[in-house]
Structures are given as C-alpha cells and as structure tokens.
Design a protein around this nucleic acid. Structure first.
Length: 603
RNA sequence: GGGCCCAUAGUAUAGCCUGGACAGAAUGGGAGCUUGCGGAGCUUCAGACCGGGGUUCGAAUCCCCGUGGGCCCGCCA
C-alpha cells in the first residue's frame, strides 16, 4: 500500500472517524472534521477535536492540532521518506490485482471506412487510449478494440457513387472518396433511382466485394497514419464484414422472446417500453442497422473475451442508442449486460458550427496534426532562435498540446475548437508539464556529468563553456541564456541518453531530512499519483490526470525556484533534493506516459 | 410534446458522485523577479458559483420550480 493510503487508513483506524483532505494545504496535511461525529455523540465539535488530538496517532504523522471543529494532522519524516522512495519506482501507481483476471475491453476511435478521420474522432480516440493506459499501468489486463463498420449505409452510398459518378476524379486515396460522399449525399434526396440503387448495393454487399476491399484498405492506411502520429495502438480491429456474427439470428431471438415485433410494413421493432423507448432492429427491406450489428458485436465481444468490463466511448448523441442496447441485452438475459457500458462525451464543434462530413464541413485530423506541429515548430524557433529545430520535438510538443487541450475538459462538456487559438503552450498546457520534466532532467543530467569526475565534466561541457564565454563578451543580456541553451543542445555529448539517465547513482539520503515548504508540497503532491490514476481508471475521466500532472508541474517549478538543488548549502540537502527531483521526473514521466504525451528530455 | 446533459472571474476551466475551514488553477489585465539547476518560468494584486425556493448546524455540491444552451426521440452511424 502506498504512503498516502496507509497514512489515511491508519489514522482512520486510530480515531475511528472518516478523515479528509483540507482545501488549504497549509492548514493541515490530513484533517478530521468533527461536526457530524460530535452531533451523533451529543458533544461540542471543538471539544471533540481537542480530545482527538490528545490521542495517539500513527507514525505517518508527527503532530496534531485542533483548529476549532477540525482535528489537523501533519505528516512525519517517516511518511516523506516512504514517499521519496516509492515515487522513484518505475511501476509507481501499480495496484495489486483484484480477484478477477478478466480483461477490460475498451472500444474507441471507430472511424467510418470510406470517410476520412476528422477532428471529431480525436476525442474518442485519445480518451479511450488514456483510459486503457491508466488501467494498464495499474496492472489490469486491457484489450484495445477499434470496431470498423464497413457494412453501413455510407459504404453502400460510396460504392454506388463510385459506380455512378464517372465524371469525378478517379478514386486514389481516402481524400478523393470524400468528393463522392458529399455528392451522393446531396443528390440522393432528389433522385429516387439513385436511392433504390443504393438500397440494392446495401442488400447485396457481397457482390461489390472488390470496391468494398478497396475502400477498406485505403481507409485503413489513412487511419494508420493518424494513429501513428498520435501514438495510439489497438489489439483487435474487427471489421463488421469479417466478423463471424449473424445479426439476423439475434433479431430472430428477439422475436422469439417477444422483445421485438414485426410491423405491417415489414419493419422489425424492439419492445423495450417502459424501461426505454423502442428502436428499429431491421429495416422494412430486411437489411440490418447499426443497432443490429451492435447487438451482435456485444455477443461477439463476450464470446471472445469474457470481459470484466466492456466500455464503449462515443459522442453523447449516442447515449440513447446505448441505453436501448443495454436494456435489450438485459432483457435477453445476457449475464454480462450490467458490465456492458458506454461513456458519452460532448461534441467538438467549430466556431461556425457542428462538424458534418456529409455537408463537407470537416477539419481533417491529419491537417490538424500537421498544423499543431508547425505551430510548435514556430514556437521553438521564436523562443530559441539559435538551436537547430528538431522535428521530433516539435511533433511531441504540438501533438501533446492538442491532446492535452482535448483531454483536460470534463467529458460532458462540448469543446469549441478554434484552430487559431486552441493549441496553447503556456499555463495550463502540456508544454508546461513537459517543460517541468525537461528541467528536472537537466538537473539530473548536470549532476551526472559532475559525478563522472573533472575530466568527464570538461568533456561534457566543453562546447557549452565556449558558448557561455562568447555570450559573456556580448552586450545583450537576454541572448545569453538562449545561446547557452543552443550551444548545449548542439553539443550532443553534453546530454545523457535516456538509459544513462535511468542509471544515475544518487547519493544516499541524509539521516535527517530537512524539508522546506516547497519540498513538502511537492512530495505530498507526488504521493497522490496512485489516487489520481485510480480515479481515471475507475471513472474513465481522463481530465483528472491532466489536472494532476499540472499540479505536480506547478509544485515542481515552485520548488525549482525556491530550492536550489546542485548549489544547495549542504551535501545532505543536495542529496535530498536530488532524490526529490528524480522522483518528480519519474512521476511526471509516468503521468505524461498515461496521457499519451511524450515526456521530453529537452525542448 | 417527452427524455438525457450542461450553466462557476472578461474568456476558457476544476471542484458536484461522497455537503464542511477564506471556491482551485489558467489566460487576459496591474505590480515585481534573471551574477543562479533552461524565463514555454517564479512571486504578487484585482476578478466568478444563472435566478428563486427547500433540506441541513453548514449548500457551488443534495431536492424542487424556473431561465438559457447542447444532444436525442423506429428504418443515419
């Protein structure tokens, strides 16, 4: 058990009351509000608090004071030592396995084959990815699933368009498909013949196998490029047409169990009232719908994975659809129904309105990715004109900012995306968190250089010193640091590789810690990582981890300003702060890792 | 007409599940900070709980009624 959990649980056991965290961290580390317990025992809350703090408390605390109706407790050196040690572990945040070894199946992204991925797909993609990362880091088995519906009406429309509109440019990639889609969507309403043709294609999709495969392959190649850029992966990517699931058998089962009925026109409709409203299972022409295939998909998932929990991430406009699905699964007697869950989130809209592929109002994901990378590159040039720009860093900063901007907003809220201002690099941003990590790395890196001995230091800083000397002779103060940084980043030997950074030997902690306020605040924040991770994994709300990462970064930059590490007055203090720096670097890297954001060592 | 969701400084956002000490950061605005481990930074000032009831010792948080906005309501996905 981690330090914070242990501290709270032992205190709870000692006082026999629920403990809380104070809003203001300077008041107390852990507090016991005495209002309710005092009322229950017919006592005065302030007196109860007084009597509590006179009781003995666990070793994680060093003192207790009563402040009115609150009993306030303060962490001891024992606690801080445990935090320093546990937060440096690469698997910090991992929790013991629960009884069930069944996997969590997370279904997300789900772009439509035949249509390009656009801005709207990013939310599902990265929310699902982050939740999967969080569960995985906690030690849970996870299946990342991307279900691609290539049997829907849009595919039939596309195939019809490809066979009808001979005057449009030849289909060569997924972008050229978009013109066909927009045109058929515009024409189909006023052209019954076209509509009928589309219906025929949908009903006999097997006869159009060649076009179907072409669409699928082109689309997947395009999707894969986006996933590569975003660093998102999947374990299982079922296409509906290749899924061995018979939707019609489910429809028959519903009819047999009186959960569906056939209307005079041939439509088959569910019977779910009064729990929820009804929906169509089979069109009057006998073709299945999205709902029908989702029903089959649920059984397919259960048969293949026997999941602990299945979670599907989509926009909240599909909330009713999934409520209906779960109700039907329950009524069909599927034992897994209570664990077949859906998480809806708000739309990403443009300043000019809702995204709509069929109306051609679409911001392609790859264009967004390119533009944020360019923006990050411009920022790097502006801030650090002399360093040579590095594409990999620009991508990490730009894509990090894009992800963070989307992830930090609570799921229920819509996001209005303004391409000009959406991606930020200052304040509550991924760049701020990445920058804190970079600074921690810089300290450890420099320390390792010093520790290698005088020769090593000379070699390592050779070019850096030259750059510094040149800067000192110059008049412009402001350029000094920039030149120094530029010189450092060009001097490849000056920076340790990631693997070398991992093996840095820190001096042992002193026998007695000497923690100032900034160090205490930082360590307390580091101790909260397992809770933050657990919150994300159990509620599937990644925004809490953005908030947490930001708080750690803030606590670290305050520590950085207030507490010199390498130039600390005493050797013991230096060792203590090196450990705190290393722990912070570890926690920041872990949090960024779960968020799918690259923890850079320089930027 | 019915259902679900949202409403917090100029802008944008956390806290709401599980009520508790002056509502937390950000950005923009004001004032400072660099002989120093990277200024994408630090310190500091001003600025907000949609309206009205109710429950409670105590409500941003729970309940009710409004107002404003979003989404959905059988053959799209």
């Amino acid at each position: 058990m981690y330090a914070l959990t242990t501290a709270k649980k032992t205190l709870e056991a000692a006082v026999g009351m629920p403990v809380g965290s104070p809003k203001d961290a300077t008041q107390a580390d852990v507090c016991v509000p005495c209002f309710a317990p005092a009322k229950k025992e017919g006592k005065n809350p302030a007196e109860l608090a007084q009597s509590l703090v006179r009781k003995t408390f666990p070793p994680a605390f060093e003192r207790a004071t009563a402040a009115g109706p609150y009993a306030n407790y303060f962490f001891s050196e024992t606690f801080y030592r445990q935090v320093i040690s546990e937060t440096a572990q690469p698997d910090y945040g991992c929790q013991p396995m629960p009884k069930s070894k069944a996997p969590y199946v997370l279904e997300y992204s789900q772009p439509n084959p035949g249509k390009p991925m656009h801005l709207g797909h990013i939310r599902s993609t990265i929310i699902g990815d982050v939740c999967a990362n969080a569960l995985q880091h906690m030690g849970r088995p996870v299946v990342r699933l991307n279900y691609l519906n290539d049997r829907g009406a849009h595919i039939a429309e596309l195939i019809t368009a490809m066979e009808t509109f001979k005057d449009l440019p030849k289909v060569t990639d997924e972008k050229s498909l978009l013109a066909y889609y927009v045109k058929i969507k515009a024409d189909i309403e006023n052209d019954p013949a076209l509509k009928e043709k589309t219906r025929q294609v949908l009903e006999h999709l097997k006869d159009h196998e060649k076009q179907l495969v072409k669409i699928r392959d082109m689309s997947w190649a395009a999707f894969q490029r986006n996933y590569d850029a975003l660093g998102v992966t999947f374990d299982d990517i079922p296409f509906e047409t290749t899924l061995e699931s018979d939707s019609r058998a489910r429809v028959q089962e519903c009819l047999d169990k009186k959960l569906a009925k056939k209307e005079p026109d041939g439509t088959i409709i569910t019977q779910l009232e009064p729990e929820t409203s009804n929906t169509v299972l089979l069109r009057s022409n006998g073709t299945p719908l999205y709902f029908t295939s989702d029903l089959a998909l649920a059984d397919w998932k259960w048969a293949k994975y026997h999941f602990d929990t299945s979670m599907i991430f989509t926009a909240s406009e599909q909330n009713l659809h999934f409520r209906q699905l779960q109700t039907l699964l329950t009524k069909l007697g599927r034992t897994y129904a209570p664990n077949y869950l859906h998480k809806g989130f708000g739309l990403i809209r443009l300043t000019e309105g809702k995204l709509s592929t069929r109306q051609g109002r679409v911001v392609l994901l790859e264009d967004v990715i390119r533009s944020v990378t360019e923006e990050a590159n411009d920022q790097m040039k502006a801030r650090n004109p002399d360093a040579k720009p590095e594409e990999a860093i620009a991508r990490a900063v730009g894509i990090g900012a894009l992800k963070y901007g989307v992830l930090k907003v609570k799921l229920e809220k819509d996001i209005t995306f303004d391409p000009k201002t959406e991606v930020q690099f200052e304040g509550d941003t991924s760049a701020y968190v990445q920058y804190a990590h970079v600074r921690a790395c810089a300290i450890l890196d420099k320390f390792a250089g010093q520790a290698e001995g005088p020769h090593a230091v000379q070699n390592a800083n050779g070019k850096g010193e030259k750059g510094k000397a040149a800067a000192n002779s110059g008049k412009e103060k402001n350029n000094k640091k920039k030149e120094k940084i530029a010189a450092q980043s060009n001097a490849t030997p000056a920076r340790l590789s990631a693997s070398a950074m991992e093996s840095i030997q820190l001096p042992p902690l002193p026998a007695k810690l000497d923690l100032n306020e900034s160090e205490r605040l930082l360590l307390k924040k580091l101790a909260e990582f397992p809770d933050a991770l657990d919150y994300v994994a159990t509620t599937m709300q990644p925004h809490a981890l953005c908030e947490y990462a930001l708080q750690v970064a803030k606590a670290f930059t305050s520590f950085y300003a207030a507490s010199p590490v390498l130039t600390a007055e005493k050797a013991g203090l230096k060792a203590q702060r090196l450990h705190i720096t290393a722990s912070t670097k570890n926690v920041l890297a872990l949090a960024l890792g779960v968020l799918g954001i690259n923890a850079l060592e320089k930027m």
